[in-house]
Amino acid sequence: MTEKRNIAIIGAGIAGQEAASVLAGLGYKVTLLEKQERMGGMLNKWSKLFPDFSSSQQILDTVQVSANKNLSVICNADISSITKENGRFELSDNSSLKVYADLVLLATGYNLFDATLKEEYGYGVFENVITSVDFEKVHKSGKKLTTLLGKEPRRVAIIHCVGSRDAKSGNTYCSKVCCITGVKQAIEVTRMWPDCEVFNFYMDLRLYGSKYDSLYLEAQKHHKVQFIRGRLSEISERQDKGLQLKAEDTLQGRPLRMNADIVILLVGMEACEQNADLCRNNTLDLDENRFFKSKNIHYARNISTQPGIFMAGSCICPMSVNETLESSRSAAFLVDKSFRSVQVEE
């Protein structure tokens, strides 16, 4: 009865680690597979978290797992196939690695939208156009954000919905976390440079979470961040490497041209390209946004369309850190429940 207790978790980001520690604590044999050299996933790229500016490192440290008798961690394991044979799942990467498990938990996370695809925004062409992730990197390093020539920016524009809610990018869904990230980063810029003007260009502000609106209020009240309702159409570069933005101020109903020293693109979350590979040889399915499809988005969000495979975190849809952690605990609970029901049947 105790043999069938092997669980493989793909992805050792915060979702995978959190689920791994819960399940290992319950006495299951967990194998945590990570494609990168180290665990932590995408959160490694972040400096501070919304809405409270707490350190992402703190979260990473809290969820950090270490190998024990119930938990083994394999890094550099880029799982590309899941096959079910004789009631067991066989997971393999492109080399010789093979892992067997009775249950699989997908915690593969997300990819960031490649901002070079939105060529009209000039990422990769104009040096002073950066992404929200580039900004986090600067912030994490403890340095101040400067223009390419090392100067203090007088004006920074933050662009919402880059690669989200955009049919031209192939992503029609909302990435959900960018709006609040934009507000957070606007505040962080003004904290670095109190004299710097910050403008956020948005289509709709979607600040759905607890305490998000108070951050919005704070940005306006204490940091004079301005919000312009209009989608950026294109950026051009002036002779002095400064940037010129074109958008419409839709509330005014007039096209707007603005010079800015730095533009931050809030890049959206995308499903991982490898998701499609993982769907081969089983009945896993992807939804219309290429994330893993849930059996039911209300009561079975963590349950995939393949019996025996569960999901946690932002491989289901874009999620914030707290949602991810809740999602993985919920997944761990369902995994445990699934094992128990099998045992009862037996």
Binding site: M203, L232, S233, E234, K246, E248, T250, R254, P255
Partner: peptide, 23 residues
């Protein structure tokens, strides 16, 4: 249409006149 204004911002005619296709 969600009135994002991208069309008007990029518009060649809007560059020269008060033309506003979104409106």
């Amino acid at each position: 249409c969600i009135s994002c204004g991208g069309c008007t911002a990029t518009c060649s005619a809007g560059n020269l006149t008060s033309f506003n296709i979104r409106k």
